[in-house]
């Protein structure tokens, strides 16, 4: 078991033939991801990396039974690409694209509201279920199959956590990079919820950062529903108010947005909070051993 993604997922890549799409598709295929094709409007009927290219997501669903898509199209076309996948009946959509206008994402969220679909991202590294499939841009080799689920708003900081977990002789069940934008498809709470229900996950690492209320929302849910330990870290303890720290969503607006306030809420909700990002793996190990 794992969440969102496994070796049976039938994946199509939107923006398949572009530079990013091509590079990461090769990496994903090497990892064992079941990529069955790609979508590039106007290039339908061609082959790329030995897989069929379709004009529309609907065609890929009809002909290849695609249930999962990953999006590498430029920001100005990305919102449309997400909605196209949702309309075609795709169940899991990962959007890697960074820089989508916020008002486009407001519309996307409204569009997805009553549909049976899960969007992860945008502006995220994707999802990986080690040993089964990789749907994203993360380096596969740092992962190891195991029982720690990871949820994070960041890319390289997630890799850091993964690496610490692996080096502490543990492994990962599924890692979900939810993305660094102000509006994301899957919230911290929703990702934690999936991992909490997953029988293969024994512990959860939740990595947040300044800005927004997603970590607090997740923490309150954890307090009420916790069946396994959660280790938390919040990046940006030294970030100034009102400045965007790289991620469009990493900006302190009010007092509840600070790393300090979030860490306090996490602690109050029974999460093992680490102050140093160097202690994430070690703390998970200690918590599971105790």
């Amino acid at each position: 078991m794992s969440v969102l993604l496994n070796s049976a997922s039938r994946v199509a890549v939107q923006g398949f033939t572009g530079k990013e799409g091509t590079f990461h598709s090769e990496q994903m295929i090497d990892y064992g991801t079941n990529i069955v094709g790609g979508i590039v409007p106007g290039k339908g009927g061609q082959k790329h990396l030995g897989k069929p290219v379709f004009n529309t997501v609907a065609d890929s669903v009809l002909q290849e039974g695609v249930d999962t898509t990953i999006i590498f199209v430029p920001p100005r076309f990305a919102a449309d690409a997400i909605m196209e996948s949702a309309d075609a009946g795709v169940k899991v959509i990962v959007c890697i694209t960074e820089g989508i206008p916020v008002q486009d994402m407001v519309k996307v969220k409204a569009y997805l509201k009553n549909r049976d679909v899960r969007l992860v991202g945008p502006n995220c590294p994707g999802i990986i279920t080690p040993g089964e499939a990789k749907l994203g841009i993360m380096p596969g080799f740092i992962h190891r199959k195991g029982s720690i689920g990871i949820v994070s708003r960041s890319g390289t900081l997630t890799y850091e956590a993964v690496d610490q977990v692996t080096k502490a002789n543990m492994g990962q069940s599924t890692c979900i990079g939810i993305g660094g934008d102000p509006i994301v498809g899957t919230t911290t709470k929703e990702a934690v919820e999936l991992l909490m229900m997953d029988p293969e996950t024994e512990g959860i690492i939740m990595i947040g950062e300044i800005g927004g209320g997603m970590e607090a929302e997740a923490a309150h849910w954890i307090k009420a529903h916790k069946t396994k330990p959660v280790v938390g870290f919040i990046a940006g303890q030294t970030a100034p108010k009102g400045r965007t720290m790289g991620h469009a969503g990493a900006i302190i607006g009010g007092d509840d947005d600070t790393a300090e306030a979030k860490m306090r809420i996490l602690e109050e909700c029974g999460i093992y909070v680490v102050k140093s990002p160097a202690h994430i793996g070690r703390t998970m190990k200690e918590v599971l051993a105790s």
């Binding site: 994070s152 708003r153 960041s154 890319g155 390289t156 900081l157 997630t158 850091e160 660094g180 990595i207 950062e209 300044i210 870290f233 990046a235 940006g236 303890q237 030294t238 970030a239 720290m245 790289g246 991620h247 990493a250 790393a259 102050k275 140093s276 990002p277 160097a278």
Partner: peptide, 20 residues
């Protein structure tokens, strides 16, 4: 640093190490 989240985490490490 490469990556915004790791950059913020690195700033945190600097503070925890006695710097700013």
């Amino acid at each position: 640093v490469n990556g915004a989240g790791l950059a913020m985490a690195t700033m945190d490490i600097i503070k925890l190490s006695g710097g700013a």
